[in-house]
Amino acid sequence: MSAAMNRALPLLAAPVAFFIAFFAVPMIVVVSSSLMAGGVPSLGNYARVLLDQYHWDVLAATFRIAGLTTVACALLGYPLAYYLVRVVKSAALRRTCVILLVLPLFTSNIVRSFGWMVLLGRNGLVNDALVGVGILDRPMRFLGTELGIVIGLVYILLPFIVLAVGNALAAVDPALEDASSDLGATPFDTFRTVTFPLCLPGLMSGIVMVFTLAVSAYVTPALLSGGKITVFPMLIFQQYSTVFDVNYGGALSMTLLVMTLVLVGLAGWIGNAGATGRKAQ
């Protein structure tokens, strides 16, 4: 055991060093700068953030946008993953679909958000189509609305949930579903009581990934909001890049981090409680 440990240590050294250098140190720098005001240790930056209703409004908008994005991603991503894993029989076709799904991830976020700016504009393809088909009388405003930001974020984050759910679905043993239908369950009952609960961990991890990425997204909201809606990462970016107040910026960053961790932890706790409750039945 100790010999194995000794062999493992040098192998671990690289990732640990990487983690310390690129995660722990920057985090410590941000935390310590957030606790300084005017050159002396102080909680003043946090008071400035937390005692101001404006910041709570922005935080609420940020979580509302991230929440809607997560719900939309889950509703769109789950059926898509199910289709890819269960319905598509040809391995080649499935591989093509997965490549098509992942391909946009190779393009920069900025380019894709600019693309959406063009598509969602007053004279953009989306409005042209909606007006052309007769759904709308005149172009609808997408840019500068929360809906526009959610559309852009869903497009960017959908692959994460599809891959997470797809992996979980592929790992479900089909024998369990066969056993369920042998015992007389309808296909819907089998899905509800066997398949869905078994891939719930995959769905949950996808949801957490999408939610945290949506909360911390800067580029997409900055471009698609047209500067008319503010999300928390935009406030942080302003402080670091144009106002140069790293102390206040640090306090904003830590506030967002802690609030997000609390929400994700809460979701995990509710999920666990639900799972335990079901087992107890």
Binding site: F114, M117, L143, G144, G226, G227, K228
Partner: peptide, 9 residues
């Protein structure tokens, strides 16, 4: 229509 944050936007 929008407030631009970069020259590119």
């Amino acid at each position: 229509a929008l407030y631009f944050d970069s020259s590119g936007a």
